[in-house]
Structures are given as C-alpha cells and as structure tokens.
Design a protein around this nucleic acid. Structure first.
Lengths: 202, 202
DNA sequence: TTTTGAGAATGAACGGTTCATTCTTAAAAT
DNA sequence: ATTTTAAGAATGAACCGTTCATTCTCAAAA
C-alpha cells in the first residue's frame, strides 16, 4: 500500500538531498571536515540532526558526495571564463572579481582547499581531488594566458608558473578568513591582477 | 642541603621554559588552539605531557604566554626592515623573501593568524592581539612606503590601503598550507612585489 | 667513591566533554 | 489506519586536558 505517489516522493526527497548538500557545502567549506559538526549542517539545512541519516549513511559519505559534486562543478565554473567578454585580461579580471565578491562562489574553492589540507580526509575524496587538481585548472587556463602573453597584456614569465602563482594567490585570499573591517578590506581584483599584468602600465 | 645551586637551577628551568615555548609556537602555529594537543607540544619539546604542567598552569596559560611573547617579537621583527640595505623596494623585497623562505619566521605570523580567527581564544589573548594588530604594522611601514611612492618605485594607491593589501597577501600566502610540489611552489618574493610595484617596469 | 635527596621526568589513569549515530515517540500525510 | 517524516532525547565511544604515584637523575656532601 503506497499512500503517496511514487514520483512526488522521489522529487521531495531529491529536493531534501540537495538542501542538505547545500548546507553541508557551506559548513564544510568554512570549518573543514573535523570542524564541521553534523548538528551544524542540520541547523544550516533547517533539519534535525537525525534527519541527515535518512539521506546519507554517515558524515563521511556526505563529505565524499560533496567533494564529488564540487569537483565537477568547479571545472565547469572555470571553463566559463572563456565565454566572458573582452580581452584575456578582461576575462580574468571579471572572473577574479566574481570570486572575490561572491561568497557562494567561494564555498567550492574553500572546500577543496580544506579537503587538500585537513587531516582524516577519506581516501576516496583524496583520490577525487587528485583528478581535479590545480594541474587541471592550469591546463584549462593555458590558452587564455598564452593569448594574454602574446598580445603583451600578461607578464612574460613561464606560463604555467604564472597561472600557478595567480591561482595560489587567489586561493590563499579566499581561504583567509580574517575579520575584515572597512579599513582593511580584502585586496580587490585589480590588486590581484597586478600579479599577472605585463610590464606595460595599464 | 640543596644539592644544586640556586642559580644553576634557575637557569635550567628557564631553558626548559623556552624549550617548551618554542615547541608550543610550532604546534600552535600550524594547528591552532584547538588543533594543538598538549601531547603534541610535549612530543615536539621532547618531554612528557605531564612535564608541561610544571611550567605552565594550563594549555590556556601556555597559549597566552606565547601570544604575549610573539606580539612583542613581531613588532621588533618588522622594525628591522628599516635597517636593511638599499631602496624601499629592496628592503621590502628582502623582508618578503626572508618570510617566504624561512619557516621559523613564519611561525609567529601563522600563530597570530590563528589567534585572530580560531574560536575559544582566551579574552586576554584577543586583547593582546588587538594592541599589536595590523593597524600597528601599517603605521610601522608607513614611512617606508611613502618614500617608495615618492621616488616612484611604488604604486600610487592610497598608502595605507597599499600596505594593507600587501600584508594581507603575504599573510594569506604564509597561512596557506597547501602540499607544495616542485611544479607548484609558493609564489616568490618577486611575484608578491608586483602588488606594490609602481607603473614603471622594473 | 659512595651516599643522599631534591628536583625532574614519566606515563598510566581520571574525568569531563564532545560528537556521530541510533532510538523513541508522535505528528502529518494519504 | 497505516505509512512516512520529523524532532529531539539517548547512547556510547573517543578524545584529551590534567593529575599523580612512582621512578630516575645527578650534583653536592660525606
């Protein structure tokens, strides 16, 4: 006797699942695997702690699921840089500005950062991250940077090195969670762009 | 009949104390207040856990003592930049290079970073940090940067903003503990200097 | 050279706390 | 009425700061 339509049931559950994953992303990104408590994720998702276990077997499974999702999303996110308007410099600048300003865009990067440095990260997550590592992002950005260098907008360093430095800086900035007041805001995109900007004054 | 002279005793104890503080600096800097376990500090100092309590009442006291010491040291450390040889640019570059390359120089910065962001940091530590905050470092560096801007070596942004941005970046880089391989090393001092470098190509 | 005893050191044990996870119970939905 | 969903209490294991009984060390005294 099924007192609920099969289909609607699935839909609701799927929605719940996403709701939990979304909450988990925020909490794991900010506090890391150890620092994130199931109760916090539950609070964020506006559910009770017990409920989480109807959708995920364990904290670990929740974490790994999240990593899997985020690894995919991030690659797509970065790919979108090529569709932005303007020169390579413009594209990179817009991309950077978005990340620095938009909190929700930061979560995936923070999560990856944590997953790369925290202890007790499940082997499966480690292995997923290895596939979607900095190396991959560098390759994704290579054409953009090469073009930027060709037309003299970007510095003439070794290209991969330049990308790596830029990504490291960006990542470091995002990760930093200093208490920010108005006197000392995060450096903005233009500041960061000086890392890659060519010798010509812009 | 005391089998050990008063003076020698004091010396030995003082040495032990320093030994513990040194170990604690490393461990607290890397793992933060919560993440650092007394047993880890003991291991690092090559002592048993119990011994720590002959010198410090509690984990908290040890932490606060350390913060106090580091707050003082750091101010002195930064002051030394003025004695370095060369132009403001040269000084800042040398200073930056030292910090990026020398692990032991990084510990105090990491500790402060942690103390500023971790939870459950004792009120006394918070208050100590407030006195020795970024604001103070900015004031310390102000003459250097003003001179650098005057002679056109530094960018013409608002001076305090420029210092703040630079310190934030430096701090973010230090704090980042990515697993570094040879393909993706930390950006070096020259990369970082581009943040402050003036429009003239160097 | 031996003895001695204060200070140093150890490491096991204690006790409190903190969670991940499970269980109970009951309301809501159909 | 029966099943699904939910909340929140309960459980139990792990962790870790701290203590303490015990042993060790080694410079001075004998």
């Amino acid at each position: 006797m099924s007192p609920l339509s099969e289909e609607q049931l699935m839909k609701r559950q799927e929605a719940r699942r996403r709701q939990i994953l979304e909450a988990a992303l925020k909490v794991f990104a900010v506090r890391g695997l150890r620092g994130a408590k199931m109760s916090m994720i539950a609070d964020e998702a506006k559910l009770s702690a017990g409920q989480l276990y109807r959708f995920f077997e364990s904290k670990e499974e929740l974490f790994v699921t999240l990593i899997r999702q985020v690894a995919q999303d991030t690659t797509r996110e970065i790919a979108m840089i090529h569709d932005l308007p303007g020169s390579p410099y413009d594209k990179l600048r817009a991309f950077t500005a978005t990340i620095l300003e938009d909190k929700s865009t930061q979560y995936p990067f923070k999560l990856i950062q944590h997953a790369n440095t925290d202890e007790d990260v499940p082997a499966e997550a480690k292995q997923l991250l290895h596939q979607f590592s900095v190396k991959r992002y560098i390759e994704q950005l290579l054409p953009l940077f090469e073009e930027g260098q060709r037309i003299g907008d970007f510095a003439q360093d070794d290209t991969r090195r330049l990308i790596s430095a830029f990504l490291t800086m960006l990542s470091a900035l995002i990760t930093l969670n200093m208490p920010l007041d108005d006197d000392h805001p995060l450096p903005n995109a233009d500041m960061l762009m000086r890392i890659v900007a060519g010798p010509r004054s812009r």
